[in-house]
Design a protein around this nucleic acid. Structure first.
Ligand SMILES: [Mn+2]
Ligand SMILES: [Mn+2]
Ligand SMILES: [Zn+2]
Ligand SMILES: [Zn+2]
Lengths: 137, 137
DNA sequence: CTTTCATTTGCAACGGTGTTGCAGTATTTA
DNA sequence: TAAATACTGCAACACCGTTGCAAATGAAAG
C-alpha cells in the first residue's frame, strides 16, 4: 500500500485512488489485463475514460507494457524498472487457449533472430498460444 | 484474374466481385492490411460489413492469416497453402516505425524457444518493430 | 436459357473501443 | 491555508466488430 505510493512517486505521478486501485489490480491478478478487465473490476468506482488515461500514463512512465493479442490489446506490469526514456522488454508472452489468460514469462527470453540486410530491429514481441500448465492435464 | 477465381474455387467459395477485389488488393499491395485499409481501398464499392465477412471467411478458409500489432489487427496472405484444417505459420512479421508498413518475412523463421514444464505451445507470433530497408538510410 | 436453391450482400442496429474538450475537483507545494 | 497544477467525470465523437433479416446474386440442374 505504501509501496504503491512509492511507485507512483518515483514516476512523478500524483497519488490518486484510481491509480492506486489500477496498480494494485495489476499486482493482485498476475496476468495481463485488458481495459475491459479493469473496467469490470473498477468500473463502479471510476469513469471509463479515467481508466484509459491511467493506462496511457502508466504506459508512458514505464509502469506497464503492452501485450499483443489476437483479439485485443492487454497490459502487464513491467517487472524490471522501465522508465519514460527506456522501455525495453525481451520476455515471452503466453496465452492459454483454454482459460484465456495471458502471462508474462519473465525468465524466457526471445531468442536472437537473423534479419535480412537493411532491417534495423528495435523492439520484439513474441506471443505464444497454447495450453498453460493449469489447463494441461 | 483467372488465378483469383481458381483460389476461391479451391476453397469452395463462390466467385463474387467483393472477394475478387479483396483478394487482388492483398496481392497488389504486398504488405499486411487492416480492415480500415481495405475499406479505404474498396469502401466505395462494398459495404463495411461485407468486407468484414470476407476477411472472416478468408481467415477460416486459410487464405489469409492474422498479423498481430500493437495498434490494431492486420491481415496478410498465407503464401503456403493453408487450409481450413491446418493453419500454420512460423515466419516473422516486421513493422516499420517510420513508414508504418507491416510485412511478412516469409523466409525468416521464428527460432525454437524453451518453455517451462507444462506449457504446450501451439502457435507462434513474433512481431519485430524497427526501421525497414526502404526507410533506413 | 430459365428456374430453383443455397449463398452472399446491404442495411439497420447495437455494444465495445479509444480519444478529445472542458469544467469542476483533488493533490501538491510553499 | 491558499495558489498552482494535475487529475477526473461527463458529454460527445469516430471507429471497430458483430448480428438479424430481407433482397440480390451465383451455381447447378432442367
Ligand atoms: Mn510482459
Ligand atoms: Mn505473415
Ligand atoms: Zn490456461
Ligand atoms: Zn519503412
Amino acid at each position: 500500500m505504501e509501496q504503491l505510493r512509492q511507485t507512483l512517486k518515483v514516476h512523478h505521478l500524483r497519488t490518486t485512488t484510481c491509480r492506486e486501485d489500477v496498480l494494485s489490480t495489476f499486482i493482485n491478478k498476475k496476468n495481463a489485463l485488458s481495459h475491459g478487465d479493469l473496467e469490470g473490476a473498477l468500473g463502479e468506482n471510476y469513469d471509463r475514460v479515467t481508466i484509459y488515461r491511467t493506462l496511457k500514463t502508466f504506459l508512458e512512465k514505464g509502469i506497464i507494457h503492452k501485450v499483443l493479442d489476437d483479439e485485443g490489446l492487454r497490459y502487464a506490469l513491467c517487472s524490471h524498472s522501465c522508465s519514460e526514456e527506456k522501455h525495453q522488454h525481451d520476455h515471452i508472452h503466453f496465452k492459454c487457449n483454454a482459460c484465456g489468460e495471458t502471462n508474462c514469462l519473465e525468465n524466457q527470453h526471445i531468442p536472437a533472430v537473423q534479419l535480412p540486410q537493411g532491417y534495423k530491429p528495435e523492439n520484439f514481441n513474441l506471443l505464444i498460444q497454447g495450453t498453460c500448465p493449469k489447463c494441461n492435464n
